[in-house]
């Protein structure tokens, strides 16, 4: 019987083995202590493998996975976050924040006017808060070279 726990247990075991393998490859230096830099990671990997085995043989009840619509929404919000991470520096604070906050707000409750207001309000409000109340100098409002 295929359950999420079993699949995950297998993933855990594979990842832990990969971690142990890369621990074995670690360069050792001439400054060494009795334990060295490999033993602790190898021990951790072994514990994780054990946990993975337990998960495969004693899985819990199946997790409740969301409906396809909800998965799509989560996927969109993750894409938005990744895009935001890349955009924040080159595009300044205001434009990416308005878009990201607006889209997230729409994903939670779709009410277009309200979502637009949330986006704009959060962008301006948080900018003022971070830049002036908290004195965060690194925050650029708009891209460099736009006159600001």
């Amino acid at each position: 019987m295929l359950r999420s726990d079993r699949v995950f247990g297998l993933v855990v075991i594979l990842a832990a083995l990969a971690y142990i393998a890369s621990a074995l490859q670690l360069q050792t230096s001439f400054l060494s202590d009795p334990m060295g830099s490999k033993s602790f990671p190898i021990g951790l990997g072994a514990v994780a493998v054990l946990c993975g085995i337990v998960m495969i043989f004693k899985p819990e009840d199946e997790a409740e996975w969301p409906a396809p619509v909800a998965i799509l929404k989560i996927f969109i919000s993750v894409v938005v976050m990744v895009a935001y991470a890349y955009a924040l520096k080159p595009l300044g604070f205001l434009i990416p924040t308005t878009l990201a906050a607006g889209i997230l707000s729409y994903l939670i409750t779709p009410r277009l006017t309200f979502n637009v207001m949330v986006g704009i309000g959060l962008a301006i409000g948080l900018y003022l808060l971070f830049r002036y109340a908290l004195g965060l100098e690194t925050l650029q409002a708009i891209p460099k070279g736009w006159g600001g």
Binding site: M81, Y84, A85, Y86, L88, K89, F93, T97, A100, A101, G102, L104, S105, Y106, I108, T109, R111, F114, N115, V118, G119, L122, L126, F130, L136, T138, L139
Partner: peptide
């Protein structure tokens, strides 16, 4: 929640961004 959670998210991003300024 449609105001609160985007707010939490944006504050998290700016907070982490303020540490190193790296994407």
């Amino acid at each position: 929640p449609s105001l609160l959670l985007p707010g939490v998210m944006m504050i998290s991003f700016v907070g982490i961004f303020s540490l190193t300024g790296s994407y």
